[in-house]
Nucleic acid binder design. Structure first.
Length: 492
RNA sequence: GGACCGAUGGCGAAGUGGCUAACGCGCUGGUCUGCAAAACCAGUAUUCAUGGGUUCAAAUCCCAUUCGGUCCUCCA
């Protein structure tokens, strides 16, 4: 079964079918490494992650290229402000970016392409465009793309560029361009700026050219899918199409995948609204990485989602339900045999799970299928109709779910510890929630000692002491569960 | 100003012409438990922003209004 996916280019849902050898060749616009990534950035990368994981589940091979923009205006400005060479500055934030991606369980693309390491390919592409008079050089030494030479301009963003829109801003500084909409391919060097001395002159690449050059270098002139946040549709992706297709004369990408923006507490996320959060901000507030991942994935990628703190708590609770069930499956000795009804239900839920993701990556419905299974299986376990022969298929479906959602394995403690260590190194430990700092310094040995003491007290029917210990642990975020198979605990 | 998207229970959210409007969280009651927790069971929107219209039938299609969002040159 193919994956049906909305294609911005066609404006409708179309089957995603790899063109070569069942290998999905995809390019995803990556980060500009000038600061720490925020949750809006990660919503996009997380949904691209779901796409690649589900494609792999459907048996496709993956060749996923992501760029790292490590030279641009903001980088130059910020590095200068920090009095650092841009390479050192971007290395710091690139490292932080991948740490965050790891924290959220986002798989690494097969190929990471840095702009500064591919200048030569960009120059070659611009020269090719220049040879056809599509690129032209202005008096200051910059190079621009002549939009008049690319009739398809606007096909992705569905814009009609005949005439200038009312209210549209037009950059009056760049008066030397032939047309207002012509965009920069190569920017002439300015004083004290990082630059490259090339056949085009001394300067640095424009924003869009890196993606065209690196995508075609690694994936060929036409590949299966190109992804990014919704804002990139125009001008970035439109310009990429223009640059690439004007040179190659074939379509750049078959499918264009755009992830919608999120709201934070019902409003557009912005620094001035005070609702702008990096991943690290949230970790220091005590929210778990898995809850952040699950929340960001719970609303399908084409819908606007409202990111709230209440939602994070809900997601953490929902994950606890799943993890508790997975533990129950592992720890319980089920009676021999197989319940046919439950076996059939498991098959049906797997069908629904796959169908939901195949239907334009409907993560909300896929999730619902798994919760249906969990309720049915818990119920069956309670009434004794979950039998040993049912366990394997239920476990398989959970694993299938987790190969896409990746929230069952608890990596949260490690991620939070790393975030605290980072905060300490950066002198930002004061931003961390106090109970988080207290809880993380509470070792497993200490916890286990108290848990054992409580178990002993219970045996002696000293319930006052047992309850006091339980309360003490609860205040440090440790939750005790007395089960049939002994006492266990978990961090809240 | 122009183009485009959205509004579903206490909260998040699926569903886009036809069975009792998924699922998660929360809340209330019950079972279990020394008490809890976990789990299960029952209850929790006669109703899908508002007002009109089309249809045998609308949360789903059409029009208007209100509100939120994206884009209209470097923001995921």
């Amino acid at each position: 079964m193919a994956i049906d996916l909305f294609n911005t280019l066609g404006g409708r849902v179309e089957a995603l079918v790899p063109q070569h050898d069942n290998e999905l060749r995809m390019y995803c616009c990556g980060p500009t490494v000038y600061d720490y990534g925020h949750i809006g950035n990660f919503r996009t990368f997380l949904h691209v992650d779901v796409l690649r994981r589900f494609a792999a589940l459907k048996g496709m091979k993956l060749k996923h290229v992501m760029n790292v923009t490590d030279v641009d205006d903001k980088i130059i400005r910020n590095a200068a402000a920090a009095n650092m060479p841009i390479g050192e500055y971007t290395a710091k934030f690139e490292r932080a970016f991948f740490e965050d991606m790891d924290a959220l369980g986002v798989q690494r693309p097969e190929i990471i392409a840095r702009a500064t390491e591919n200048i030569g390919d960009m120059v070659t592409l611009i020269e090719k465009l220049a040879s056809e008079d599509i690129a032209y050089k202005t008096e200051d030494g910059s190079w621009y793309f002549r939009i008049a030479r690319f009739p398809d301009y606007g096909k992705l963003s569905k814009k009609d560029f005949d005439g200038i829109e009312d209210g549209a801003r037009v950059d009056v500084d760049e008066y030397e361009k032939d047309a207002a909409r012509d965009f920069a391919l190569w920017k002439a060097v300015k004083p004290n700026e990082h630059s490259w001395d090339t056949s085009l002159g001394v300067g640095r690449p424009g924003w869009h050219i890196e993606c065209s050059a690196m995508a075609m270098k690694h994936l060929g002139p036409t590949f299966d899918l190109h992804a990014g946040g919704e804002d990139l549709t125009f001008p970035h992706h439109e310009n990429e199409i223009a640059q690439s297709e004007a040179a190659s004369h074939v379509p750049l990408a078959k499918h264009w995948f755009h992830v919608r923006f999120l709201l934070v507490e019902g409003k557009k996320m912005s620094k001035s609204e005070g609702n702008f959060y990096t991943l690290r901000d949230l970790l220091l507030k005590g929210y778990r990485a898995s809850a952040i991942r699950f929340l960001l994935l719970s609303v399908p990628y084409r819908h606007q989602m409202n990111f709230t703190f209440e939602g994070l708590t809900e997601s953490a609770n929902a994950i606890d339900r799943l993890r508790t069930f997975a533990r129950r499956l592992d720890k319980t000795e089920f009676a021999a045999g197989e319940d046919a009804g439950l076996a059939a239900l498991t098959v049906e839920k797997q069908r629904l799970f796959d169908a939901a993701l195949s239907n334009d990556l409907n993560t909300a419905e896929a999730r619902a299928a798994i919760f249906d299974l969990v309720r049915a299986a818990n119920s069956a376990a309670d009434t004794g109709t979950l039998l040993a022969g049912n366990v394997a298929s239920i476990r398989d479906l959970l694993a299938r779910f987790d190969s896409v959602f990746d929230v069952l394995t608890d990596r949260d403690q490690r991620v939070t510890r790393d975030a605290l260590a980072w905060a300490e190194a950066e002198g930002r430990l004061g931003e961390a929630a106090p109970e988080l700092v207290a809880s993380s310094s509470f070792s497993e040995e200490e916890i286990q000692k108290l848990v054992d003491e409580r178990t002993l007290a219970k045996k002696q029917r000293n319930f006052a002491r047992a309850d006091a210990i339980r309360k003490e642990l609860a205040e440090k975020g440790i939750l005790i569960e007395d089960g049939k198979d002994g006492v266990s605990w978990k961090r809240k």
